Simulated assay, not measured.
Amino acid sequence: MNIKKAFSNSLLSLLYKKPLSKITIGDLLEDTELSRQTFYNHFLDKNDLIAYVYDTVIVNRFNEEMSIDFKSALTQTLNSVKKYEAFIEQACLIDGQNSLKEHMLNHCIEFDLKWHEYCIGKPLSKELKFAILYHTNASHCMVLQWILDGVNYPRPKGHGLVTAQSY
């Protein structure tokens, strides 16, 4: 049995019953019939479980080798964000220690630095590293705003909204 996956599935299914902020470790234990010690053997806290769901369900392709098809991975990620919109939006509203917002930023920084170094084929210059960090932080803010605005894709004026499936 994959314990982490059991807690992940439980968290996502409990979202149909109550808001993420109201789901407790006790709720997860009752739903999975696993012990508190088992939970804490695998996760630091609920935010750590939320980050695990993000890593394995939402951005799982971006945890692969750098030779991924970037467009395909991005499209899959956008579709996952749309599919798990309730989870991601509610998770991004939670502040505090090891919040998803912080985890997302760290994940993006780590990926972007590795991706650019992979593409260039050599260590990044100080200037390029700064530019990548600047862009990553700006992109992170934009993605958070997009998530909190309801995961809608803007289209050129007069064309309505585009869904993730359109890309």
Rank of each mutant, 00 (worst) to 15 (best):
H103M: 01
L29F: 01
K122F: 06
F130Y: 11
R155Y: 07
L28Y: 13
K18I: 04
R61F: 08
Q90C: 04
M66Y: 13
I50H: 11
M142E: 06
F7Y: 11
T24S: 07
T77H: 06
G158T: 09
M1V: 12
I88D: 01
L28W: 09
N41G: 06
C119T: 06
K17C: 13
R61C: 07
Y52T: 10
L20T: 00
C92D: 00
K101N: 13
W115R: 15
T38C: 11
D27C: 03
Q97W: 05
K5F: 01
Q76S: 12
L78T: 10
V143P: 05
L49P: 10
G96V: 00
L15R: 05
A138C: 14
I88E: 00
R36H: 06
A6D: 11
L29T: 05
L20Y: 00
H140G: 06
E117Y: 09
M1A: 15
K101E: 12
K157R: 08
E65N: 14
Y84T: 06
N106R: 02
I147E: 06
S80D: 14
H42K: 10
L100V: 02
L28F: 13
P154E: 03
Y84F: 14
Y153H: 11
D149R: 05
S8M: 14
E117L: 07
A131L: 10
Y84R: 05
P154K: 00
L148W: 13
Q145H: 15
K122W: 02
G96M: 00
K46S: 03
G160L: 11
A164H: 01
G121N: 01
I88T: 03
G121K: 00
Y134P: 02
L15H: 05
D55N: 12
